[in-house]
Amino acid sequence: MTDAMGIFDIMLALVLPWLGWRLLASPNLFRAVVLFISLGLLMSLAWVRLHAPDVALAEAAIGAGLTGALFLSALRRLERLRDSERRLDYAEKREEEQNLPPEKRRKSKPVAYVLALFLLSVFLLLLGGALLKTPVAPGRLGPAVAGQMGQSGVQSRVTAVLLNFRGYDTLLEVMVLFLAALGVWSLTRVRQTPQEKVPGPVLATLVRLLVPLMITVAGYLVWIGSSRAGGAFQGGAVLAAAGVLLLLANVTVVRQIPSTLLRWALVLGPLLFLLSAVACMSIGGNLLEYPRQSAGSWILLIESATAVSIGVTLAALYAGGRPHEPAAREAIVDKSADTKVKNGEGA
């Protein structure tokens, strides 16, 4: 039985880089993105082989699913921009047609490129050799984590590390997501999809069927996170998938979500995490030092809030811009934020 697994490992370890190479070398961008999604799925297979169920879940949901969805929507936007007439100057387009080399034709190989390639390969050989020779440090932090599991308030070791031992990392991590949402919202407005794009009957029923199921699965994932594989990130990812489905089906209720509610949903996780971190200090302890006996419930509270926020944030990232503010002030702000910027204006 183990040698069958060995063969599977060898095949998987070979397929991954091969797929990576095919992905970057493929002439057509759409094919590259599809290969990227399949690479993500195979990667989650690899995580399962390496006994990392949490990471497998996250990789499948976020690494392959959501990132793939982001790439596909970006690709669609790029295609639409290329043929749309909103161009800086027409000459530029003509010039692009004539001498734009098809994607795959590289420019001639300058000496610098060959030199860089050589240096890169030497460096990687050195790295491979070093990896081969040096043994992994014995035990690393594993035993330390196992030792302290008693006071961490949860059974699953990954969740314990993620939210208790190194909770500060996760706090900053949630801030990174919040920052990404801020960045996307500051750069563009969500695309003005025409109202009449009614989803087909199949998609409508699919959405009506799946979304409630997804929400329960997300809740289950967050709940089970304290003992087995799961947790805030995976739960949030499933929620985000539900959000993406709703956006795809262009469900009217999604369009009508008032922007303030959306902003509070985005901010719920980081804010709650921050307040609970400070609360721990107020009851006498360091930052993020949950009281020992009720640590489990603190962690669950934070996890659920973070899951909701991650779900909403990732869906907002897929939407690709800030929503239309119904309020008058914001309307003005939106209308011209995207119009072409006069060159001399921006300081």
Partner: peptide, 9 residues
């Protein structure tokens, strides 16, 4: 931070 000493926390 979190009350855990250096190598772990």
């Amino acid at each position: 931070i979190g009350g855990w000493q250096a190598p772990l926390g």
